[in-house]
Computed example of a mutant assay.
Amino acid sequence: MDNQTRGLTLVFTGNGKGKTTAALGMAMRAWGQGMKVLVLQFIKGGWKYGELRAAEKLGPAFEMRQMGEGFIRDSGEEGLKAHRAAAQEALVEARRAVQEEDYDMIILDEINYAVNYGLVDLADVLDLIRSKPPRLHLVLTGRNAADEVVDLADLVTEMREVKHPFAAGIPAQKGIEF
């Protein structure tokens, strides 16, 4: 990166669809500019999402890791323990990646959900944001971004659901939701 580059903290939040999609679009743009990108998914796990297949084809400068246990709803107490352990591991991995300064952009996909569900502590996420190197772009996605995260961010976009096909009984569609 040149000396004009200032790493930004960006947040995509809200109840509408498109938070991860916006972050991945930004990641593609960064990758296209020769930047090294890491995507850590805090909730997603187990499914073979289309973005994982695409990332594999982009090579070593675009890395995506599913760190989560999948859907949280109806997990029960034992399930929540597994989700919490996975999210904690993802946070450790995020901290390591930020400290190593090997990436130009790190996306913490669904980290806001992880905070909201109590899987990771807000204070730890705030420390991570504050500790990022000046040149690193850090992107956080997920509903219900904490006010403190919003305050630290340089850019915040809130996706608002206006209409969704699921409400009309249309199931998740390949290439759209996964």
Rank of each mutant, 00 (worst) to 15 (best):
M159V: 02
G79W: 05
V149A: 05
E77S: 08
A22Q: 09
K163P: 08
D102I: 00
L152S: 05
E100N: 03
E177K: 13
L155T: 14
F42S: 01
G76N: 11
G68L: 12
P165T: 13
T5Q: 07
W47G: 02
G7H: 00
I170K: 08
A168C: 01
V139G: 06
L138K: 09
L128M: 14
E89V: 05
M1P: 14
V149I: 15
D74Q: 07
V156R: 02
A22C: 06
E110K: 00
D151W: 05
A97V: 06
R53V: 13
V120R: 01
D121N: 08
P60Q: 09
V162Q: 04
A90N: 09
K36L: 00
M35K: 15
G59M: 11
Q41D: 02
A82K: 15
F178Y: 14
L8Q: 12
W47V: 10
Q41A: 01
A23Y: 03
K17Q: 14
T21Q: 07
N3D: 11
L8Y: 10
E161H: 12
A22Y: 05
D154V: 10
Q66F: 07
K174D: 14
P134C: 05
E56P: 11
A146M: 08
A87L: 00
I170H: 02
H137E: 08
A114E: 06
A168E: 11
L126C: 10
L136F: 08
A22L: 08
G32V: 05
E89N: 15
T13A: 02
T9K: 04
A82E: 14
T5W: 09
E78A: 12
K132Q: 07
G79M: 06
I170G: 03
A90P: 10
A54H: 05
A114T: 06
Y117L: 13
A30K: 15
T21I: 13
L108Y: 02
I107A: 09
R84S: 12
T5G: 06
T9L: 15
R160K: 13
E177N: 14
R84T: 15
Q33C: 07
A97I: 04
Y113T: 01
H164Q: 12
D109Q: 01
A82P: 01
E89K: 15
N116F: 04
T5V: 11
A90V: 11
E100P: 00
D154K: 08
L91K: 09
P134D: 14
E78L: 12
M64D: 00
L8E: 04
E51S: 07
T20R: 10
A168S: 11
F71Y: 15
D104S: 12
G16Y: 01
A167L: 03
R160N: 03
P134F: 06
D102K: 14
M67L: 15
L10S: 04
E69F: 11
Q4H: 14
E148P: 06
R130S: 15
A27M: 12
E148Q: 13
L152I: 06
Q88W: 01
R53S: 10
H83K: 00
G169E: 07
A87N: 04
L126G: 02
F62C: 05
I129S: 04
L128V: 12
A90I: 07
Q41N: 10
L122G: 12
E158P: 04
A97E: 04
Q33R: 13
L91P: 02
R135N: 05
I129F: 10
V156Y: 01
L108S: 04
Q88H: 13
I129G: 00
M26E: 03
G118Q: 08
L155C: 00
